[in-house]
Simulated scan of single mutants.
Amino acid sequence: MDNVRHRYLSILPDLPLWVETRGLLLWEGSKIIENPTQSGFVVWSTEDGIGSVVGEPEPQAVALAARDVPELLAFEDNIERLRSLLRAFQAEPATIFTEPELLPYAPAHRCCEISLDEISVQSHLPADLLAELSNVAEDEVTIVAAFDGSQPVAFAYVASETESLWDVSIDTIRSHRRRGYAVSAVVHLMCLMRKKGKSAVWGALESNPASSNLARRLGFLENARLWVLTRKTA
């Protein structure tokens, strides 16, 4: 690991606010540019389409990341500066939740890990979801599926991972939403990750109250706040 990554990993604590940023720093395939005065940096992954801006990196570095990825994370101390630098992006707050001490109740839907080969033959899945899950599975990330009979209908996977935390991502096909399948999948994955000594972090955009409400219903607790800057569409 290069010295720049190592330095910022030692500075940024392994806390829910930083789970995606630390996940990017830990992945050697990401790009990172720091301010010459070491007062900030930007790290991003073109593969995942996301980056994080910490402190006050040079405007040129921010512009380079913004050219490569459609989504950047910002924080309390730099959101206003980034709003002015990135006029082609819109900013939205997001709440970061942490998992409860006790695992939440989950409906008794069958759940298990699902492989890339198994995902590839699921012709009932929408094309965008099939592509998303295939990309995740190709990176050897754990994916849990909840089943209706023999068909997987909801999925939970590790979107980012640090030494002690992981970021929740869930998807459910439209016909099976609000029926407990996503809850079953995410609780099953929480059990697997707890065995590895890792706790779940749940991020929810302000524009997605359904996600926030589900997190609260599962007992997740509000912990922090950040901003997601997304490139505006024409």
Rank of each mutant, 00 (worst) to 15 (best):
L82A: 05
K232R: 13
P104S: 04
N135L: 10
K31H: 07
K232Q: 13
E80H: 09
K195F: 13
K195C: 14
E161Q: 12
V201N: 00
L165T: 03
S120M: 15
A91H: 08
I32V: 15
L73A: 07
V42H: 07
R178M: 05
V228W: 09
E161A: 02
E99K: 08
T21N: 07
F220H: 07
T46V: 12
G203H: 12
P152A: 15
K195I: 14
A108R: 09
S10T: 10
A215S: 00
R5W: 11
G180Y: 10
Y181M: 04
E206V: 03
S150R: 09
E140P: 05
M1I: 04
A106R: 01
E163Q: 12
G40I: 09
D2V: 05
L25N: 01
S207D: 13
V158G: 01
T233K: 11
N135W: 05
S184G: 11
V158S: 01
G203R: 13
V153Q: 01
Q90T: 09
I11F: 13
V168C: 03
C111V: 10
R194E: 09
S115N: 11
L85P: 06
M190E: 04
A159G: 12
E140G: 10
A137K: 06
G49L: 11
P16Q: 09
I143T: 01
G180S: 08
H188G: 02
R178G: 01
N213F: 06
R110D: 12
L82D: 02
S184K: 07
R7N: 13
A88R: 08
D2P: 07
S84T: 15
A200G: 13
A127Q: 11
T95E: 01
R177Y: 02
G55D: 02
W18E: 01
N213P: 01
R217D: 03
P104I: 00
D167W: 06
V144Q: 08
P100Q: 02
R178P: 01
A66M: 05
W166L: 04
R22S: 05
C191L: 11
R216P: 02
M1G: 11
P59D: 09
L189N: 02
V136W: 02
P93W: 06
N135Q: 12
N223E: 09
V187K: 05
P100D: 04
N78H: 12
S169N: 06
A224Y: 00
W18C: 02
E163N: 09
C111M: 04
M193H: 10
E58R: 09
D171F: 04
V141H: 06
G51V: 03
A66Y: 04
V153Y: 02
F97G: 00
P16N: 10
